[in-house]
Simulated assay, not measured.
Amino acid sequence: MDESSPTPAPDGRTAHERPGVYATPGAGFERDTRYLTTRITADGRDGWPVEAGRYRLVVSRACPWASRAIVVRRVLGLEDALSMGVCGPTHDERSWTFDLDRGGVDPVLGVERLRDAYLVRDPRYARGITVPAIVDVPTGAVVTNDFAQITLDLSTQWTTHHRPGAPDLYPEALRGEIDELGDEIYRDVNNGVYRCGFAGSQETYDRAFTRLFDALDRLEARLTRRRYLVGDTITEADVRLFTTLVRFDAVYHGHFKCNRHRLTEMPALWAYARDLFQTPGFGDTVDFVDIKRHYYEVHRDINPSGIVPRGPELRGWRTPHGREALGGRPFGDGTPPGPVRDGERVPAGHGAG
């Protein structure tokens, strides 16, 4: 997520157990956005040139911010150029861990904790240990954890390594509209659910709740008349909205008190989310078990018992959505990605059937 292990807030406020976020009692939620902003680019302007096999993308499928990178990497076909390490859904106060791997050690980086790669980059690193992060394999150092820039660079800087038929998720002619809408989605929806969940007072919760559902109402109206958010193909904007929508009923509706409506009660958004979920590269990356375990087990100040709810029913994600009637071409002049690679499939029983 910007999901990380807890760090002291910059001004001494109490840090939440959630990664990279903090709040003042009685006030509102804030997110620690002090990222490592060095970029991996085609020209290597920051000292990190695009190079197949050199870097490792570290993610957790629990995390909506990391899920963006998982989707974009798969849709663009970057599996051979950029390997992926997957952390488990929970973490302790120190770091995300590679507890899904044999012996609890990432087989490429040779470390148990993502924190180790941050400390190679900066031995005095005191910010959030966040995912997604891209690590330079030869040195073992984190290059960047700037989640918003990571996916844009995968689209624009890694083009030499895109699969044949990869779509353009960030077309130059639409970038202004994608950026403007993406900023609104981040501010009012992606981050908006957190403002509700971690509100420190009734007043701040009420304000956050209204802001979130006002934004969802605007998106509902927009998606009633068009299949995708910008243009007639899937773009970066759709990726950014999808990773929040797919978690909405499973965690945000109950756990974060975002409960004016379930996603399933918002007709256009629910059909839109199912359309994307059933598109190769989207739903086949979603791990509902990891998602629920992370939120309900880690956020003990919100859910002290750590009990993970059994619901909601997930079979609806596979039902017909009817969005084809609005036109649009999911991958434009490109093609869908092929089957999920061996070793990268969501475990059986963790998806939507």
Rank of each mutant, 00 (worst) to 15 (best):
M1E: 11
E3Y: 12
S4M: 00
P6A: 04
G12T: 10
R13W: 08
R13I: 01
H16Y: 14
P19D: 12
T24E: 14
G28M: 01
D32E: 12
T33F: 02
R34H: 12
L36C: 07
R39T: 06
I40D: 03
T41P: 01
T41A: 01
G44W: 07
R45M: 00
G53P: 13
G53T: 07
Y55W: 11
R61C: 10
R61E: 11
A62P: 06
C63F: 08
C63H: 05
P64V: 06
P64Q: 07
P64F: 10
P64G: 13
A66V: 05
R68V: 07
I70G: 04
R73H: 14
R74H: 15
R74E: 13
L76D: 12
G77F: 04
L78S: 09
D80S: 15
L82M: 07
G85K: 12
P89F: 05
D92V: 02
D92N: 13
E93T: 12
R94N: 04
S95H: 05
T97W: 06
D101F: 14
R102C: 00
D106S: 07
L119P: 00
R121Q: 06
A126I: 07
R127M: 01
G128C: 01
G128H: 09
P132G: 06
A133C: 07
V137H: 11
P138Y: 03
G140P: 05
A141V: 13
A141G: 08
V142M: 03
D153S: 00
S155L: 00
T156H: 01
Q157G: 01
T160V: 12
G165W: 06
P167L: 09
P167N: 13
P171Q: 09
L174E: 15
G176R: 11
L181K: 05
Y186K: 12
V189Y: 04
N191C: 07
V193G: 04
Y194E: 06
T204M: 09
R207T: 15
T210P: 00
R211V: 09
F213L: 01
D214C: 00
R218D: 12
L223W: 04
L223F: 09
R226T: 14
L229W: 05
D232T: 15
D232R: 13
I234M: 04
T235G: 06
V239F: 10
R240P: 09
R240T: 09
L241V: 06
V246A: 08
D249T: 11
Y252P: 03
H253F: 15
H253M: 04
G254K: 10
G254W: 04
H255E: 05
N259V: 10
N259K: 02
H261K: 13
H261N: 13
R262K: 15
T264S: 15
A273V: 03
D275Q: 10
F277D: 07
Q278G: 05
T279E: 02
P280W: 10
G283L: 01
D290L: 01
H294K: 02
H294A: 00
E297M: 15
H299R: 04
G311P: 03
R315E: 13
R315Y: 03
G316N: 06
G316M: 08
R318G: 13
P320M: 02
G322K: 11
E324F: 08
A325M: 03
L326N: 04
R329A: 09
G334P: 12
R341P: 04
R345I: 06
V346I: 12
A348L: 09
A348C: 00
G351K: 01
A352G: 07
